[in-house]
Design a binder for these strands. Structure first.
Lengths: 138, 138
DNA sequence: TCCACTAATAGTAATTATTCCTATTAATGG
DNA sequence: CCATTAATAGGAATAATTACTATTAGTGGA
């Protein structure tokens, strides 16, 4: 998870471009994919800058980090609470409307002695396309 | 996520030791930690063997893979459905009883066109200990 | 508008996590 | 017991991310 950092404010063209890149797609891109997107318009941006700004934007709440089993961190411009479906064959991600009732969250807070700041609810399976075109063995 | 593999059967002392190591702790250890545990009794086991067997045992359903945002894969000997609380400060994990009602699962299956095989519900926050001893900024 | 300050960047090296490779070892079935 | 071959040990290779550092460029004030 992105560590908290002292708040950063200087607004750079690179930071804006990284945010716009994630917002421009619905694929929940990882750092490498964001790098490829941004380089179309900003060929000299460095990969380290992409990583730094993705973390920063996540800390600021402008992006949401998501990660699926065995996969690398990805970024989601949809920051409102919602869940994900991850296809284990094609590795595509679908956004789902929030399905976790408040009652469940409250119950969990009672059971946990810690304070809950956020949660991730991720479903795994085969998407309709991959269910047709592959065997169940990936 | 562990890819499916052709079923493996030859039972080795290394494989048994890896399984026992994960079962012996409640910390949801990662590969490196399992390696350290196993080496106490089996000093020559190789790290690659630990990785291979962890994947294999997960495929066989004897272990469950878990992963939290920004962290590496960990392994859980509790394979029955349950949820996790992950402390973002000390990175310890707590098991929670299942709190996701069947009605929610069914509703999600209706919304998803894919078939759901499993899900992960992970809560993030500060555990009671870290809430006292750290500021909210990790 | 210019300047001084310093946060942020580009480019690259280093680190971390994981997988791959291969000669050797050992589990298994006959 | 062998013969077969899956699995291992050890190390090299790869992939993902972070760290390092000289240079660039936002920013706030004169």
């Amino acid at each position: 998870m992105a560590q908290d950092r002292p708040p950063s404010n200087r607004s750079t063209t690179q930071r804006a471009a990284v945010l716009r890149a994630v917002e421009s797609v619905h694929t929940h891109p990882n750092a490498e994919e964001v790098y490829r997107l941004v380089r179309k318009n900003m060929p000299n941006i460095s990969l380290a800058t992409v990583y730094r700004n993705l973390h920063l934007l996540a800390d600021e709440g402008k992006l949401r980090e998501v990660q699926f089993l065995g996969d690398v961190l990805r970024y989601d411009a949809m920051t409102d609470p919602h869940e994900h479906f991850y296809c284990r064959a094609c590795h595509r991600v679908w956004d789902l409307d929030s399905s976790l009732p408040e009652t469940v969250l409250r119950a969990t807070e009672r059971k946990t002695h810690g304070s809950i700041e956020r949660y991730a609810l991720d479903y795994y399976g085969l998407c309709s396309h991959c269910r047709k075109s592959t065997t169940s063995r990936d």
